[in-house]
Amino acid sequence: MRVVVARSIDAALAALASATEASRILAGGTDLCVEFESGRTRPDLVVEVGRVAELRFVRETQAGLEIGAGSTCADLLRSAPVARGADLLALAAREVGAVQIQNRATLGGNLVTASPAADLVPALFALGARVRLASLAGRRELLVEEFVTGYRATARRPDELVESVVIPPRPAGEHRAFHKVGTRRAQSISKVVVALALGPRGAGARIAAGSVAERTLRLATLEAALARGLARERLAQAVAHAVALDTRPRDDVRSTARYRRAVLERVLVRVLGPWLEPEGNAA
């Protein structure tokens, strides 16, 4: 196993040029070191990017809020621009582990690990985030849903580094919410996690859920129903329909598929209900 400690993006990209599918990038270490410990991962190459200062920033740009992939959860919690433009990300960051983990766990790491139980990823889905990747071959940008492709799988090529995430400007009048049901009140992995954004009269709905399938996903069926101007009275039925159609929860050591389905439905109804118009008022 080779280990390269990179202190710049250029150095990291140079090291990654020879990376294979088995290579790993080490940032905060809060996922990767656990994988080492459990023996799940035996990389041929580890590129350490934990202190690449260029990856750790938050800046407001014309395209929206750009957040460096090396930003830690603690950075997200302290950032005023994040609180303004990407509040869901701050709410999610608060739910990651506990303080010691928040001090190390990075935005890029949460994305690249792509755990179905990730806390930040659903928030990025709901925010409509785009992921910026770099390699010696060039740069590209993907929608976060395109980036996360499966169970702990992403569209990142072995030679690519996630540089940053771009959050589009917040549309006027958009409702947002984040809700996590975990195994306890801190230091917990989700049983169900929901992040959502909803424009006026159901426009531009982005409803994301974690721990209910092999990957974080959007409830497209529900989003479509909302876009059609779903009335409050019909919400429960539409949610049940969407959860049945769009999610694939499983029994595991943390919970059961039945519980996950039921709780996802109840949380969605609880959060969305107050935002919807009653029948008659609906568009």
Binding site: V34, S38, A98, T183, R184, R185, A186, Q187, S188, I189, V253, R254
Partner: peptide
């Protein structure tokens, strides 16, 4: 034992 890690063997924290 299914809870053979502290990530899955849950005991109360300060907040619980």
């Amino acid at each position: 034992c299914e809870q053979d890690r502290l990530a899955t063997c849950i005991v109360p924290t300060t907040l619980d």
